[in-house]
C-alpha cells in the first residue's frame, strides 16, 4: 500500500484516498466536442510516470495531483490541485 503525503494533512495511508482520473482527462465545459471525446477516452496509460488526480476523501477531502509511477508506485510529487495551473 502507498503512503501519500497530503500537502494539507501530511503523510496518510492510501486507504484514505481515491483515484479519480488522469490530469489530462479533465473536460471543461467550453471544450469542443472532439477534444472532449479525446480527453474522456484516450489514455496514454503508460507503464511509467503519469499525472493523476486523487481525492483525500477520508481526510481534508481536497483534490490532489500526484506524479506517480505505475509500476513501482513511486510518488515523485503531490501537489494541491489548482485550476489555474492544472486545467
Amino acid at each position: 500500500m502507498m503512503r501519500i503525503d497530503c500537502p494539507h494533512c501530511g503523510p496518510r495511508a492510501q486507504a484514505e484516498f481515491a483515484y479519480e482520473r488522469t490530469l489530462d482527462s479533465i473536460v471543461t465545459l467550453d471544450m469542443a466536442e472532439d477534444e472532449a471525446v479525446a480527453r474522456l477516452y484516450a489514455r496514454a496509460n503508460p507503464r511509467g510516470f503519469d499525472d493523476e488526480l486523487w481525492r483525500h476523501g477520508f481526510g481534508c477531502r481536497q483534490w490532489l495531483v500526484l506524479h506517480r509511477h505505475r509500476q513501482t508506485h513511486e510518488i515523485a510529487s503531490v501537489a494541491a490541485f489548482d485550476p489555474a495551473i492544472h486545467s
Binding site: A42, A44, N45, R47, R70
Partner: peptide
C-alpha cells in the same frame, strides 16, 4: 493489461487503463 504500452508503440492511445 499491456494493451496501452503496446498500442503506444504504434502511436495509438486507447480507452483502456491498466
Amino acid at each position: 493489461g499491456n494493451s496501452g504500452p503496446v498500442a503506444a508503440l504504434a502511436g495509438i492511445t486507447l480507452p483502456i487503463e491498466a
